[in-house]
Design a protein around this nucleic acid. Structure first.
Lengths: 217, 217
DNA sequence: GAGTGCTTGTGAATTCATTCACAAAGTAGC
DNA sequence: GCTACTTTGTGAATGAATTCACAAGCACTC
């Protein structure tokens, strides 16, 4: 009925659902580029490595986007998914830590493409401060709190050594930033009103060695 | 009863369990460094952001490692966890793609610390071939299949542009490598006997913007 | 060696996520 | 407009993961 519903999540949405929405959106953008006009849940499922029922259930949490007998309009569904995922607007991001990981992030194209604007990078190493990271000014971490008041970034990316990660997170929290993408391989403790996602390569590697060892050859 | 059980997984172990084992191990290593001799499931749970019942259940899949009334011996449990996770031995790793991400990976200390030996890096860009990535030789991707026969690496890290990721994965699969850590932000399709873990920053970021948009302020 | 206190290990209960299965709603052909 | 064919949206059924709750086991004291 209401194909642009966007009924805001009545019940808590599972992480796994949000991840899949990301995946669907990526395919939809590919289809969009190729000029396809409709897609079925079956097609999305095949590409995303899941089932068509799962695709429909995932979407059903947010409304009703398809036409029975036909499928989903590619441009309409991508717009809706972008909306749902909060990609309908720009986001200001700061990178904390101007090391190798910070550099790899700063140059990552997908960042800007999806509306993430990197407003600054921070470091506490005097040799790095004042330099640039892929064209982004590296500022003294001492300025962090004052800068946040001015720039009000919404997202902080933590690319600092694991020893400092929790302390930096606490500063980020106090400064009022509510979303953090953490690259330090540690479990961080954050206030309840904050969202922290950790990208932990060490953990994924151990997932691999576990698989090799236990299900392996 | 049998405190060194390591009864090999009777039933399939959930991914989430394996991830938590990694987390526990990290704390245990910290405790080990501080010379603590025992730890309770309660303590591990608090640090790892879970519950003590969860910790005990996770461990119970593999055997019985604690002493009632006392807790777990720090050195014994870390040894067991390392064993379970397959970290009791070394692993040969190749990095494919000598760009920024490849570089960030190559210098990552935790790699070597946990017994991962990077045997080579590969690229197909003539300007990079012959150079080094943090001391590791960058080889021509043409040599890949031949080298795998000689070096028999067990793990491949994919740090190539998303356009090439699936094609490279297919080559890796054909070469007989059974474990892949993928950094390209795409859904890959692999044979069933292969384990692929994807580290997808874009997806995590979208998890953040979703949270900011839907549960947000 | 009986009593107290603490913590594990684990079935049972519960909660959460996925899959099934089918009515409802659309298209297309005639 | 009727029939045949598709594909959605969604309750109900199933399956998986987490939490509960408590008996069993060990350390320590007296």
């Amino acid at each position: 009925m209401n194909s642009q519903a966007l009924s805001p999540p009545v019940k808590r949405i599972a992480d796994s659902t949000v991840r899949r929405l990301s995946i669907y959106l990526r395919f939809l953008e590919e289809f969009e580029g190729r000029g396809l006009s409709t897609v079925s849940s079956e097609e999305l499922a095949r590409r995303g490595g899941t089932t068509s029922a799962q695709v429909r259930k995932d979407l059903s949490f947010f409304g009703s986007f398809g036409k029975r007998g036909l499928g989903y309009s590619v441009p309409e569904l991508s717009t809706s998914l972008r909306e749902i995922l909060g990609l309908g607007r720009g986001w200001r991001v700061v990178i904390i830590g101007a090391g190798k990981i910070g550099a790899a992030l700063a140059q990552y194209r997908g960042f800007r493409q999806r509306g993430f604007q990197i407003v600054a990078a921070y470091d506490s190493n005097a040799e790095k401060i004042g330099g640039t990271l892929e064209g982004i000014e590296i500022r003294d971490m001492h300025r962090f709190e004052a800068d946040v008041e001015k720039d009000h970034p919404e997202i902080a990316v933590l690319a600092v050594p694991m020893e400092h990660a929790q302390a930096v997170l606490d500063r980020v929290a106090r400064a009022g930033i509510k979303a953090v993408l953490n690259f330090a391989p540690v479990q961080l403790h954050a206030p309840a009103d904050m969202t922290v996602k950790t990208v932990n390569m060490a953990m994924e590697l151990e997932g691999l060695t576990f698989a090799l060892t236990n299900q392996g050859v």
